[in-house]
Design a protein around this nucleic acid. Structure first.
Lengths: 222, 222
DNA sequence: TTTTTTTGTTAGACAAATCTAACTTTTATT
DNA sequence: AATAAAAGTTAGATTTGTCTAACAAAAAAA
């Protein structure tokens, strides 16, 4: 079993590099809040355990197994964030710190129950994709509701404004993270938009729409 | 801030000794699953931090501050057990292991929200008292429902039988942990009891009553 | 009250994760 | 291409929590 520290290294390798970008010892050290020397030591250990591929002065990347473990931690982190946000009324910016701790709880049953309790959410309160139980994680393109095409269906994944008046208005309109929305119309005159949410159509201002982050459910479909 | 290890020592000192009984290095080591030498080292450290009172070859006890910290950990442990049991359908015997991990999560807000979400439960699924937010923990005498006096009010705190048929029957009758019950009658003929729960009166067998653990709300009142 | 057994303590070692400070390699700049 | 800067590495120290093995004290038994 992995230590919390090892899990954190894997998670950060995943979050920073994510298959694509290059990650260096310094950069990773900065993310983790430790010194480059410590990262170096740990990389040797993780290489030994076959969780990262890495040669002296060379590229750092996760192995298949390392990625699997990292995704599991990310899954737990994002499920807990969603739980804290939607069940315990934590705000958007409070969830991260506590989820950093909760992500290390070891219990497959707990994670499954959490997922079920939250009704298998697709996005966390930051609008990031929550990997499913199989570790699958569809790549998505986030945008603001303002940018969405009329007639398209989308899912609300986050807010950009965390002020009380905005959040109150959001919930007043029946909007919430992981809710399905449809853009019914956009008025050329003043940019007001009509949005269908929970079978009701509401009208919102462009300014409001700009603070709602969504992913398009119709975009990029085959 | 205390490490998880330190918290565990305090919690176990509290649980084993609980103000009354003597606790020795060996006994504590057995509870914690470590060697007596390790306990000795840690006791020195906790003494240094003024969390335990302890002299060489002498008695071990928690200081006021140490007890406070220990109770807080116990509170978290029991709230999490209750949560896992009542919200995530963990069984009575599954909750402990996961609560051992969750009890170390640091977030005052989380604990308060948990308490609120569970409606300020008084007992965990093992029938142990959950300390309140102030650290108060009324001493109670547990007994089985069979032993309860007719006319008395009591609170169900645990079950003694963990079999599916029993548990199904329990929930069928509308019984549950932290529910208030009143003993309406006991029939001399066969010992059948009538119990009021949620404003409904149900009849139960003595065998059934023997597997329900309660605390009497009327006993020991001034 | 001796002796034996149990309990408790110490010193020294070890593993995990970190650090500092010196050093090496790679990359960028002139 | 030579040199300066940045990035990466190593060795050795430190902290936390543990261990073993030897020893000391207290309690129980003879």
């Amino acid at each position: 079993m992995l230590s919390q520290t090892e899990e954190n290294y894997l998670k950060n390798l995943f979050n920073v590099g994510d298959g694509e970008k290059e990650v260096g010892t310094n950069e990773l050290a900065a993310y983790l809040g430790v010194k480059p020397a410590s990262v170096n030591d740990m990389l040797k250990k993780l290489k030994e355990k076959k969780l990262v591929d890495y040669e002296k002065y060379g590229k750092i990347s996760l192995t298949e197994e390392g990625r699997r473990k990292a995704v599991e931690v990310v899954r737990k982190h994002r499920l807990w964030e969603t739980f804290l946000y939607s069940t315990f009324d934590f705000t958007w910016d409070e969830v991260h710190e506590v989820a950093e701790q909760l992500e290390h709880i070891q219990s497959a049953k707990l994670v499954n129950k959490l997922d079920e309790f939250l009704n298998y959410p697709a996005y966390d309160p930051h609008g990031d994709v929550i990997p499913n139980a199989k570790g699958e994680m569809p790549a998505v393109h986030k945008k603001t509701l303002l940018e969405e095409v009329v007639g398209h269906h989308c899912t609300m994944v986050a807010v950009k404004d965390n002020s009380a008046p905005f959040l109150q208005y959001v919930s007043r309109l029946g909007l919430g993270i992981n809710n399905k929305l449809t853009v019914v119309a956009r008025h050329a005159y003043d940019g007001q938009m009509e949005i269908e949410v929970n079978k009701k159509v509401v009208t919102i201002s462009p300014r409001f729409a700009q603070n709602i982050v969504i992913v398009c459910d119709d975009c990029g479909k085959k």
